[in-house]
Write a protein that binds this DNA or RNA. Structure first.
Length: 425
RNA sequence: GGAGAAAUGGCCGAGUGGUCGAAGGCGCACGCCUGGAAAGUGUGUAUCCGUCACAAGCGGAUCGGGGGUUCGAAUCCCUCUUUCUCCGCCA
């Protein structure tokens, strides 16, 4: 969330820039400012009583020590009313604070100045593209779900039997290819300076709040109600939350982590060609990169993450394009997001395989993730960033479709050593 | 799952109702000492909020979380969480 101070000092900027996200924040912002005034006033009243009470208590202590019990008891009487007042102010204050908090979390992150105006994904700005668009022969132009069946790589029906739609079973060379991709991505990320972590796949409420999934977006996550835990929709959640309530020193930055995890998403309301085959699943594998950096360097970090992800799709020889998301297509918490899409030649459509974002201090403020600046008194909120590097299913789909021939599916060169085979036939 | 013990600052560790935001040690930072370093020595060393100039000063809060008793709680009570020991179970 945005800090109160920022909203106070930049009321107009907040309102204006959120228009780019098609969000009218005027009423919210004003309600927040008003509520905070009330908070301050109430807090002052409460603290004044508190201070008086502390003084009296000390006096009573002294009196008892000096053996002046009578005077002490008189002072006790005096404190009764004060105590009552404190109680009233305290409960009023905590109510106001929780109302204020509820308002505060409703404000999305403000977009970076470079974010294009737009309503939906058609308004995204193409930054660049690369790779060679494959030309498939008519005799070898099957969508990946057919290929998966033909070569017995992925069994969607079996997943339905075991769990339900959207939980495929990878088999044989399909499973092996999946594992090869995971290892390839992790190795590449480590080479680029990201330290691997293997996080829990289930998180508590605090973690869900820290990265912005909770409140409001709980419908997207599977909820284990018995223990009040959530299955992670992305490794971003547990990995970023490693740094919740942490104060790092300046020279520890940047922090760079990579993590493989299964991801679980309810995807309520999705339908049609979007959910066909591997296009959209309830459980899928993803390798994530997460970075924590100083504010003044976070956009350089974002660029380097984008550049790194680009090398991954290049090494896999997939045709890709990079989009800068418009305000309307960005997530609630992001300040600037680049999406990567690869072309899936048989479906003849672009599939999103990575989303790389700078959250600036929006998550950090929720996480209380700060860093200590040499020679300065106050700690600063750090900036958090993350991106997929990469999400597996659609990469798998594109590899299968783009590399199909009448004789089988060619494995990209970089994966051969991970797979142990160079063709699926 | 059952029984018991514990949770204090970056770390270790005192503190069982009053001036304790918290002794002492370690670590760290700066200074002195030194040709340089070590040793020695001095000073400093949590976070948040309010007032204010995001200064100083002042006030408030925080000793795992929440609640309670009390004029007053790190200290007493309740509850939750976590850790350790023993038993059970298990990959």
């Amino acid at each position: 969330m945005l800090t109160l101070k920022f909203i106070q000092e930049n009321r107009k900027t907040v309102i204006d820039s959120l228009k780019v996200k098609n969000f009218d924040a005027t009423q919210l912002v004003d309600a927040i400012l008003e509520k905070d005034e009330l908070r301050k006033k109430t807090q002052q009243q409460q603290e004044e009583c508190q201070a008086q009470m502390n003084t009296i208590s000390k006096e009573i202590g002294m009196l008892f020590k000096d053996g002046k019990a009578q005077e002490a008891n008189a002072a006790k009487e005096q404190s009764t009313q004060l105590k009552e007042n404190i109680k009233v102010f305290t409960s009023r204050l905590s109510e106001i604070e929780s109302e204020l908090h509820k308002l505060l979390v409703q404000i999305p992150n403000i977009p970076h100045v470079s974010v294009p105006v737009g309503k939906c994904d058609t308004d995204n700005e193409k930054i660049r593209e690369g790779g060679v668009m494959p030309v498939l022969a008519d005799s070898a132009k099957q969508p990946h779900w057919d290929l998966a069946k033909q070569y017995d790589l992925i069994d969607f029906e079996l997943g339905v039997k075991i769990t339900g739609a959207g939980f495929p079973v990878y088999k044989g060379k399909g499973a092996r290819l999946q594992r090869a991709l995971i290892n390839f991505f992790l190795d590449e990320n480590e080479k680029a300076g990201y330290t691997e972590v293997l996080p829990p796949l289930v998180v508590n409420e605090d973690s869900g709040f820290g990265t912005g999934q909770l409140p409001d977006k709980e419908g997207q996550m599977y909820h284990v109600t018995e223990d009040n835990l959530y299955l992670i929709p992305t490794a971003e959640v547990p990995v970023t939350n490693i740094y919740r309530d942490v104060i790092v020193s300046e020279n520890e930055l940047p922090i760079k982590n990579t993590a493989y995890s299964a991801c679980f998403r309810r995807e309520a309301g999705s339908y049609g060609k979007d959910v066909r085959g591997l296009n959209r699943l309830h459980q899928f594998d993803k390798v994530e990169i997460v970075a924590i950096e100083k504010p003044e360097r976070s956009y350089a970090m974002l660029d380097s993450m984008v550049a790194h992800v680009e090398t991954l799709v290049q090494k896999l020889s997939l045709p890709y394009r990079i989009l800068k998301l418009c305000g309307g297509d960005m997530s609630f918490t992001s300040a600037l997001t680049f999406d990567f899409e690869v072309y899936s030649a048989a479906q003849e459509r672009w599939l999103e395989v990575s989303s790389v974002s700078n959250f600036e201090s929006y998550q950090a403020n929720r996480l209380k993730l700060r860093y200590r600046i040499e020679g300065e008194k106050r700690n600063q909120l750090a900036h958090t960033l993350n991106g997929s590097a990469l999400a597996l299913p659609r990469i798998m789909a594109a590899i299968l479709e783009n590399n199909q021939t009448e004789k089988g599916i060619q494995i990209p060169e970089v994966l051969v050593k991970y797979c142990g085979f160079n063709v699926i036939d």
